[in-house]
Simulated assay, not measured.
Amino acid sequence: MSTVHTDVKYGKHERNVLDVYLADSASGEKTPAVIFLHGGGYMNGDKSAVRSRELFSICMEAGITVISGNYRFISSDPFPAPMQDGTRIIQFVRYMAEEWNIDPDKIAVSGSSAGAHIVLWNGMKGDLSHPESNDPIERCSSAVSAIITFDGQVTKDQHFYKEHYLGDKLQPNICLYYGIDHPDRLEDPDIRKLSYEASAINFVTPEAPPVFTWFNIDFGPVPIPEDTPISQVIHHPLHGYTLKKVMDSYGRPCLFRHAGDPLKDGELLQFLNDSFRQQVGESGGK
């Protein structure tokens, strides 16, 4: 078994901890790394979830280090706190790259559900470092080589669902997400601005990292029928379809899979290897 570091602190909050599963490197060469963030509606979940995912075994067998992190919950810390923790994790891993034998130019991010949106948002925002900061971790780049999402949303804007969903159910925990006390406030100008800032789809650029996005259900009819369970609405492949259309418009790689067009054997590892070879952007380093 490769070396494992558990509950490594990357920030001040009690949930600012991560686990590191260092890949074996017999040659001593620096390894690529994948950072994973768990799902749970921004309200629950734990970094240990990574060990049950196929991605974990794929990476370990391929010599890719895996880092799995916790982040602040919206029950106490609404947007942008979870996103900021995602940024900090990427920067922290890059800061620790030499000690953990990681190639700082080959860092990908992945996540499930809420964690998927956090990593997608960070990947599309690009480098959020602060070069003049007194904190050496904040001076590190948060740019990534690739993004892998499982059942991930591309937006936190309720208007997306008004356009594509025939029902009227709200996203779970949407008021907590924005730190408001009533759904009517979702139409307030300041919350409308926040909903734009919180939605990863709004930040796709011609420099966007390659994306692999996967969904556990079939595409199904669109608009989404009124009687569709809200859990399927927020995890609908329409999110991936929308992302791929925008990525395609910029000529950026986006592999979109769902239950009706499932993942092929070896496809995920091939995506990672191709992305690491074609990595665009600069790392921060220490």
Rank of each mutant, 00 (worst) to 15 (best):
W100C: 04
N101G: 06
D103I: 01
D103R: 02
I107K: 00
I107F: 00
I107R: 00
I107Q: 00
A108H: 09
S110Y: 03
A114K: 10
G115N: 10
A116I: 03
H117P: 01
H117N: 09
I118M: 02
I118Q: 09
V119A: 03
W121L: 09
W121C: 02
G123L: 04
K125C: 06
D127P: 07
D127N: 13
S129Y: 04
P131M: 10
P131S: 13
E132V: 02
N134D: 15
P136W: 13
I137G: 04
R139A: 02
C140R: 04
S141Q: 03
S141Y: 12
S142H: 07
A143M: 05
I147Y: 02
F150D: 02
D151E: 11
G152C: 07
Q153W: 06
D157R: 02
H159Y: 10
H159C: 06
F160L: 06
K162F: 15
E163L: 15
H164A: 13
Y165F: 12
L166M: 08
L166G: 04
K169E: 08
Q171M: 08
Q171D: 10
Q171V: 07
P172F: 15
P172W: 15
N173Q: 07
I174K: 04
I174W: 13
Y178T: 02
H182F: 12
D184V: 09
R185E: 10
R185K: 15
R185M: 12
P189C: 12
I191F: 07
R192M: 15
R192F: 06
R192N: 05
S195F: 03
Y196M: 06
E197W: 03
E197Y: 05
E197K: 13
T205K: 14
P206M: 07
P206G: 06
E207C: 02
E207N: 11
P209M: 10
P209Y: 01
P209K: 01
P209F: 06
P209E: 03
V211I: 15
F212L: 14
F215W: 07
F215I: 09
I217K: 13
D218I: 11
F219P: 02
P221T: 12
P223C: 11
I224L: 07
I224H: 11
P225W: 05
D227L: 08
T228A: 10
I230W: 13
I230E: 03
Q232E: 14
Q232P: 02
V233A: 07
V233T: 06
I234A: 02
H235P: 00
H235T: 12
